[in-house]
Design a protein around this nucleic acid. Structure first.
Lengths: 229, 229
DNA sequence: TAGATTGTTAATCGATTAACAATC
DNA sequence: TAGATTGTTAATCGATTAACAATC
């Protein structure tokens, strides 16, 4: 084995890394040089052991009695995620959500640069949204090929999602970030990442109903206690 | 045990239910009455056994040799998620993402109704976004109390997130849907659901890098093969 | 040195997959 | 009836948590 200490990371770990990165950048801006897993755990209300295991996948090592050197850790996470280099992307569907993503500044720090939008709606074509051109859908394929764009973001209505994905695949897009609730048909060499708001809402809804039920149960219990007296 | 066949559902299962619901509604609109787990699995490219287990948590039973009766299944999932009743919510932060969420029609079918937005920016106050009033932040607490609002959506810049959460908690909000990358401090009787775009982007990025590495590895292998000849 | 903190190895937990019995 | 499909019980896999050794 060489000096490369990177290990295989599970999905759960990968999903947590951006939160660590966000916090570390904040700490770094506050002038901190070093942080312990225990300190991170306190802020993120997570488990210190889990944090050490998660950070281990980046290959960055901490020092016993000291903690992790923040600049090195930031660099290691960025490299692990590939966020140290910018990847250009096209977005299709310049509606509400599409516009929001075009205007989101946070992607810069995540190695993503959405450089243009596409839409089939003639009234949107030619506009600029947050400084980015909206081009006609029929230009997508050519532009992807010409500019060697690797990532496509889909924010169209559900009905159009598969059609857009097909064009992207044909044009040679390597990864699709899919914001529709549609399960896209795609060749297996194309990566599809589904970003589904309704999953998160489902968890919230169920937790809320469970809280209701727990409260009803308690109230019933109290009534029973009271009626006993 | 009574006739209630609902079982405890894991988080992973809950997150998949909206995708089933979406598909079932589509099939229903197409006039289908009945569907098998195998059919669903084919469309969603998932495992039929997993789908049967997932659906079991709703208490809805299928018929051997027939499959599931779609209208009953839709109803069961909606009830399980609490999406058969509408819950009203307030949104704070009428920026790009906030506006997109205010305009998103899909929430209607997920039992969520964002009835108003709040912002500290005077220039936004008084506007209407997608037919919804933008009110001043200093009205939030009173309105939450007066209207017994249970859900708060946070789409403000990171710096303001904790402050907004504190106001929501003080006002009696029961659940917060947090779209910022900030880990919110909150009492444990308040539900916080983090919706973190960067998690999904992290998974996409890593998968893309892994694909690159695999390709490089193969190309190196081919070069080696060629040089052997 | 002593003690705080990392990192590893083992144990537990939950989620997925497999095998198979039940049933229409 | 035969066979397709559900639903349950068991086995595997991955992720989290615990225990502890290594180290500065």
């Amino acid at each position: 084995m060489g000096p490369d200490k990177q290990k295989v990371a599970g999905i759960a770990t990968i999903k947590r890394l951006p939160a660590y990165l966000h916090l570390l950048r904040h700490l770094s801006e506050c002038g901190r040089q070093v942080v312990s897993s225990d300190h991170i755990a306190g802020i993120l209300k997570a488990d210190a052991i889990q944090i050490r295991k998660d950070l281990a996948v980046t290959g960055c090592e901490g020092k016993p009695r000291v903690g992790y050197y923040i600049p090195a850790l930031i660099k290691a996470i960025e490299e692990f995620l590939g966020w140290d280099n910018t990847t250009e992307a096209f977005l299709v569907g310049a509606g509400n959500l599409g516009s929001a993503l075009l205007g989101y500044k946070g992607f810069e720090r995540s190695g993503l640069d959405i450089i243009a939008a596409f839409d089939a709606d003639e009234s949107k074509v030619g506009q600029e949204i947050h400084g980015k051109q909206v081009l006609h859908m029929n230009k997508l394929s050519d532009m992807v090929k010409r500019m060697h764009i690797r990532i496509g973001v889909i924010t169209v209505p559900s009905e159009a999602a598969q059609e857009v994905a097909d064009v992207m695949v044909e044009a040679g897009i390597e990864a699709i970030w899919n914001f529709t609730p549609v399960s896209l048909d795609h060749p297996k060499n194309v990566i599809v990442q589904n970003e589904d708001l309704s999953s998160g809402l489902a968890v919230l809804s169920v937790r809320l109903s469970q809280a209701d039920e727990a409260r009803e149960f308690n109230e019933a219990g109290i009534r029973q206690e009271v009626s006993k007296v």
